Amino acid sequence: MEVRTIKVFTTVDNINLHTQVVDMSMTYGQQFGPTYLDGADVTKIKPHNSHEGKTFYVLPNDDTLRVEAFEYYHTTDPSFLGRYMSALNHTKKWKYPQVNGLTSIKWADNNCYLATALLTLQQIELKFNPPALQDAYYRARAGEAANFCALILAYCNKTVGELGDVRETMSYLFQHANLDSCKRVLNVVCKTCGQQQTTLKGVEAVMYMGTLSYEQFKKGVQIPCTCGKQATKYLVQQESPFVMMSAPPAQYELKHGTFTCASEYTGNYQCGHYKHITSKETLYCIDGALLTKSSEYKGPITDVFYKENSYTTTIK
């Protein structure tokens, strides 16, 4: 009895394709271990004539594949690729409408935090270190965002349907971005203890939790000093293409032309909904596939993004 075979390709990165001759009487799992086709788990399936010449994702289970996976995804987590594939199996079914010149995501599976993050990423200057993220990001900007969303979920250790947080998501993504040249110098002034300067680099240099107003941050924000008295913390120097200011959701007025974009969060910790506000020729609110415009805006804002380049204080 002759062994019926077909020729397929296996890959971990969709760049390096490895030619395989597979036995049609055995499952993919018996031949390769966990195997995925377009995100779908085909591990328990036997090869079919229609699979001839198709590319299958496999887990990096030998040295060659491990090197290829690390170079593309910059992670050695053995569960990463499987999590990416199972997320992709959902995100490829989502709709990605162009809204006001940006790629958004039609609401499904509690994905409003991903839509808000995706919209924000198209408006701030950011370059990702893992080629996987950078490639998928370019495709997302062009309207094909399924891979990018699935990668975000995998890097953030999230599953489809789980509630997510924009600030946490951005923080994970910033860790995989090139923020080497970003720098922030802060000064804390206390009447009792004097003053202390701190220099922050990388992710810490672009994120701040405690106030939404970048102007206020430049002037000074009140913080408790270690001595128990009130101290003032203010920005001395900022070198970065953008800054992200966050605070627990509270009524906040966004003035046209003073910011790049913002995240609105309605609801409580267990259950809520994100919308995205962007400042173009007027203010726009993007909620999944829905767009509304207004000249002014007041609502429960939790993150505001500002364009920056270089700032030095005039406070002496």
Rank of each mutant, 00 (worst) to 15 (best):
Q122I: 05
A154D: 02
H90N: 08
S310I: 12
V185I: 13
K316D: 15
C182G: 07
I223S: 13
T75C: 09
I15P: 06
E125I: 04
T199V: 12
Q197T: 15
E281F: 01
T10L: 15
S294F: 13
E144H: 11
V160N: 03
L290A: 14
M85V: 07
L173F: 02
G228Y: 01
L65F: 09
R167A: 05
T192F: 09
S246G: 01
D77H: 06
M24N: 15
G202Q: 01
T292S: 12
Y208A: 11
G194N: 01
V67M: 14
Y28K: 05
G39M: 09
K218S: 04
A108Y: 04
V99T: 09
E2Q: 10
L179P: 04
A140I: 12
S104C: 12
T266M: 12
G202W: 00
M209Y: 15
Q222R: 11
N157F: 06
E68T: 07
T91V: 08
S86K: 14
Y306N: 01
Q123Y: 05
Q175S: 09
N61I: 14
T282Q: 12
P131S: 03
F217A: 15
A177W: 01
C190M: 01
F128D: 04
A117K: 02
D38T: 09
E68P: 05
Q123T: 06
P248I: 06
Q251R: 08
F148N: 02
N157W: 04
V99S: 08
V203A: 12
K229M: 14
R167Q: 00
C190Y: 03
D165W: 01
V42H: 12
S25C: 10
S181Y: 12
Y96K: 02
N147D: 14
F70R: 09
V99E: 07
K183N: 07
L173Y: 02
V166R: 01
I6R: 07
N89A: 12
P241H: 08
G194Y: 02
H276Q: 03
L121W: 04
K280I: 10
E296Y: 14
I15G: 05
K316N: 15
K229G: 15
L37N: 12
Y311M: 10
T75N: 12
S294A: 13
Y36G: 04
Y274Q: 04
V21P: 11
Y269R: 15
Q20W: 08
G161M: 05
Y113N: 01
E144C: 10
A132P: 04
P131W: 06
Y72K: 09
K158T: 02
V189S: 11
T64V: 14
K298L: 15
F174P: 01
R4K: 13
K280Q: 14
D165E: 15
D109S: 06
Y96G: 05
E281D: 14
C193K: 05
P97E: 10
Y284C: 15
D77S: 10
Q123A: 07
Y172L: 13
V221P: 01
D23M: 12
Q270Y: 07
T116Q: 06
T64Q: 14
A145V: 03
Q238D: 02
T266P: 00
D165V: 01
Q237P: 01
D77P: 04
H276E: 00
Q98F: 08
T292D: 09
E52S: 13
S50V: 12
P249N: 02
Y72T: 07
P130L: 04
Y73W: 03
N157V: 03
D109W: 03
M244T: 00
R184Q: 07
Y57M: 14
D62M: 06
E68H: 07
G257I: 00
T278H: 08
E68A: 06
T266L: 10
C156R: 03
P97T: 12
G29T: 03
M85R: 06
H176I: 06
G210C: 01
L173G: 03
G288Q: 00
P60V: 06
P224M: 15
A40Q: 14
E308V: 12
N16L: 06
K106E: 13
L126R: 04
N309V: 13
V203K: 11
N61H: 11
I105C: 06
Y208C: 09
E204K: 13
M244K: 06
A177Q: 02
V206E: 00
E296S: 13
Y172S: 13
S263G: 00
G228F: 00
T159Y: 12
T11C: 05
L290V: 15
P130I: 05
S294N: 10
G53K: 13
R139S: 13
L235D: 00
T312V: 14
F56H: 04
K307L: 12
C225M: 00
V243F: 02
L163H: 10
V304C: 04
E253I: 09
T292C: 10
K106M: 13
T312P: 09
G39H: 09
A146Y: 07
L126T: 05
V203F: 14
E168Y: 07
Y252R: 01
A142C: 15
V58P: 05
Q31E: 08
V8F: 06
S86V: 12
C225W: 00
G164L: 01
H51I: 05
L114E: 03
K44N: 14
E204V: 06
A262I: 00
L163W: 08
D41L: 10
H18F: 07
E52Y: 12
L291D: 07
P60R: 06
M85F: 08
V188D: 06
V221N: 03
N111R: 01
D287P: 02
C193M: 04
P78T: 09
K183E: 07
T75Y: 06
R4C: 14
P60I: 07
C149G: 04
L153W: 06
V58Y: 05
G267P: 07
T282G: 15
D109A: 06
R83P: 04
E239W: 05
D23H: 10
G228R: 03
Q134V: 09
G257S: 07
D180M: 08
T64H: 09
G82T: 13
G164D: 03
L290M: 13
L118S: 05
T282K: 14
Q20I: 10
L119D: 05
P34K: 13
V8N: 04
S310G: 07
T120F: 03
L114G: 04
G228T: 04
K229C: 10
V243Q: 02
P241N: 07
V12W: 07
N100F: 06
T159A: 15
L81I: 14
V3T: 12
V304H: 00
K233F: 08
L65T: 14
H273M: 00
H276M: 08
T120G: 05
S263I: 12
L254W: 05
E125P: 11
V12P: 07
R184N: 04
K293L: 09
T64C: 15
N61D: 10
S213V: 05
T266W: 06
N187R: 14
F32H: 12
E52M: 11
D62E: 10
F56G: 05
C227S: 01
K92P: 05
K293W: 10
Y265C: 00
M170C: 09
E71L: 08
M26D: 12
T55L: 06
G39D: 09
W94E: 05
V8A: 10
L81V: 14
Y72R: 09
V185N: 02
N110P: 05
I152A: 09
S263T: 12
Q238A: 04
A150N: 03
G267M: 07
N309K: 12
L283P: 00
L88F: 10
E162A: 09
T266C: 07
L17Q: 14
V221I: 14
E144N: 13
D135R: 08
T116V: 13
T5N: 13
I124K: 03
A150Q: 05
N111F: 03
